[in-house]
Nucleic acid binder design. Structure first.
Lengths: 169, 169
DNA sequence: TTTAATAACATGGGAAATTATGGAAATCAA
DNA sequence: TTGATTTCCATAATTTCCCATGTTATTAAA
């Protein structure tokens, strides 16, 4: 399964229209079980992300994965209802049009601070949509955290998890 | 599994096209589960490597291993999102064309300082793409570190690490 | 073992398709 | 009707695809 990779900056016009980067479209198409050549693929935009001023796009398949994780929590539990609020209530379906664009509603633009430009950021099984300056700040913050705490190597060492595990077994 | 080995310098034309050294292509092909003779293999270029001004190429298989490790970290955790920024956001898919070339986008060329020449460096399960002079400098730096600290022999002794570890278990 | 023939490789240029984006017409809702 | 939204069309710039060529490596033949 192809993943969302890379960063791209696109214009947002006065109607809120913005092009989805072509590589992202391929992933969205692949992740929509009903899609076939010539059709307009659907996906989900989640705007309930707290502490992070961005929108998140999920392919239908990966949204399904997340929903299934939520479903494993006990019905009517506070945690489950909270997650359903954040992931289901605060999200919308979006359809890519024949020109490869979507429309960001005024509400979505307001939440994300996006006016005339948007930065798309691949995050594997999802992607983020940022107001460009906010994204730069967020990246700077991340890089600062990495260098201030000398986390560079440590972060990558998280990737040794599997090996370590294998040794223990 | 074949590994990336050796160094090679190739031209980069005005469109950003550059030939992947043939031996590297064999590894890329082998590492793309969808590849078969006559098809164009895909791989991943990571450009988010901090403190190192080069691009890194991963076969789909080895990138997939990395992605699977990331996926084991809790969703929305800081560590996971950081790794996704470094590995997913700061990377792109690349496809080798029928002539054995890829296109380095203006962005990739800017990040790596590459203009009209590129040096390909085999690193086992990945390879690096350097601006030739930067690579020479990096090699010089590495050699200096080795001689300044008299590490020439010691460095090889690190290879016994795994064995020692096994003994302890 | 030298020479000829063939294949593979690195590189250049142009044609064709795709992408991002703007605007106009058509549709819908109030 | 009128404002908003959606659909459709147009276009410039980019990216991809296809073909051509000189060069190097490999194989086959003498």
């Amino acid at each position: 399964m192809r993943r969302f990779r890379g960063e791209a900056g696109n214009k947002v016009d006065t109607k809120g229209r913005v092009s989805i980067p072509a590589p992202f479209r391929r992933v969205i198409e692949e992740g929509d079980p009903d899609w076939s050549v010539g059709l307009n693929p659907n996906f989900v935009i989640v705007y309930g992300r707290r502490n992070t001023k961005c929108l998140e796009g999920y392919s239908l398949k990966s949204m399904d994965d997340v929903d299934n994780l939520v479903s494993r929590l006990p019905r009517y539990s506070k945690d489950r209802e909270t997650l359903e609020r954040l992931l289901n209530a605060q999200s919308v379906y979006a359809q890519v049009d024949e020109n490869g664009r979507i429309v960001l509603s005024p509400k979505l633009r307001e939440i994300s601070n996006i006016t005339d430009k948007a930065t798309f950021v691949g995050m594997g099984d999802k992607f983020q949509i940022w107001e460009p300056d906010n994204y730069i700040q967020d990246m700077a913050l991340m890089n600062k955290r990495l260098s201030d705490n000398n986390l560079e190597e440590e972060i990558y060492s998280l990737l040794d998890y599997k090996e370590n595990n294998d040794r223990k077994i």
